[in-house]
Amino acid sequence: MGESGDTPVTALSRGEGLAAWRQIADGLAAEIEAGRLAAGAQLPTEAALAARFGVNRHTVRRALAALAERGLVRATQGRGTFVEAPRLAYPIGLRTRFSEIVSRAGREAWGDLIAAASIPADDGLAEDLGIGVGDPVLELLTVHRADGTPISTARTCLPLPRFAGFDRAYAALGSITRAYAEYGIADYTRLSTRIGARVAAADEAARLDLAPGRVLITIASVNVDAAGTRIQATRSLFVADRVELVVEG
């Protein structure tokens, strides 16, 4: 019986060598793939699923963890477990704009500012931004969302004093492009892009609502303004199961 006393029990095969948690995971995966659990839908609570399948909550928790590892669901602290949306096609080209890409896909884009600090440029940043080693740089740590789902997190660095206060503009506007407009930059282009991959660290997984051990796509990029001046060096981490990179010629 379910939490309300009338939830029918979905029978599992017993004694056939397939663990109960695996049967539950496979059954829920089939419902997701068939569209009976739509993208963005919230799954029933652990207690409700335990009642449905006639198992304990530990077994359900293991099944949900397996679905998260497969990229089919994501667990959000304090909110529950949700079906992942289809992968977002994400073009990488001369003009790469997160907000525009997400909006074209019919989803709502927003960026959250996690932290900001003024730091001295190290050798790598100095080279990327065309400035001297030790020159001041504004460092932003951000998370970018589509319909509330974290798609990427990034460390973005901009030269000071030109972009003093940029963190406040970004926090208010939720977009690098919109924040640039506050500084008189109507257009900017991609100078370079380097793409790689690695496993998410624990803090990155938490920031992106990921199961531990999931794969991230790494993108290191440099942007320039209309005059060709280097204005932005970014190290982005994209959830591999949530985007499909499209490299434009």
Rank of each mutant, 00 (worst) to 15 (best):
M1P: 15
E3Q: 12
G5V: 08
P8W: 00
A11T: 13
W21Q: 07
R22D: 10
A25S: 11
G27R: 00
G27A: 08
L28Q: 00
A30D: 09
E31F: 13
I32P: 00
E33P: 09
A34F: 01
A39R: 07
Q42D: 09
P44H: 09
P44K: 14
A50D: 05
A51I: 01
R52G: 01
R52N: 09
F53E: 04
F53N: 05
G54T: 13
V55Q: 09
V55K: 14
N56E: 08
R61T: 05
R62D: 12
L64R: 03
A65Q: 11
L67Y: 02
A68V: 08
A68N: 08
G71P: 02
R74H: 14
A75F: 06
T76Y: 11
G78I: 10
G80I: 13
V83T: 00
R87A: 09
L88C: 00
I92P: 01
G93I: 06
L94N: 12
R95T: 00
R95K: 14
S99Q: 02
S103V: 06
S103M: 10
R104Q: 05
A105Q: 05
G106I: 03
W110N: 00
W110S: 01
L113V: 13
A115R: 10
A115Q: 12
A116V: 06
A117E: 14
A117D: 15
S118I: 14
S118Y: 14
P120H: 02
P120E: 07
A121W: 02
L129G: 09
L129N: 05
P136L: 10
P136H: 15
L138H: 06
L138C: 10
L138Q: 04
E139G: 11
L140D: 01
L141E: 13
T142A: 03
H144F: 13
R145Q: 00
A146I: 06
G148I: 04
P150Y: 01
S152R: 05
A154R: 08
R155Y: 12
R155T: 07
T156G: 03
C157I: 14
C157G: 05
L160T: 11
L160S: 09
R162W: 15
F163S: 02
F163W: 02
G165A: 11
R168Q: 13
A172T: 12
A172H: 14
G174K: 12
T177M: 02
A179K: 01
D187M: 00
Y188F: 09
Y188D: 12
T189A: 12
R190H: 03
L191D: 06
L191M: 11
G196V: 08
A197N: 09
V199S: 10
A200M: 03
A200I: 08
A202M: 13
A202G: 10
A205H: 12
A205N: 11
A206Q: 06
R207H: 13
R207T: 06
A211P: 09
P212V: 15
R214C: 03
R214Q: 12
V215N: 13
T218D: 01
V224G: 07
A227D: 14
G228F: 07
R230S: 10
I231D: 02
A233T: 04
A233Y: 03
F238T: 06
A240K: 08
R242I: 08
E244S: 08
V246S: 05
V247E: 05
G249W: 07
G249N: 15
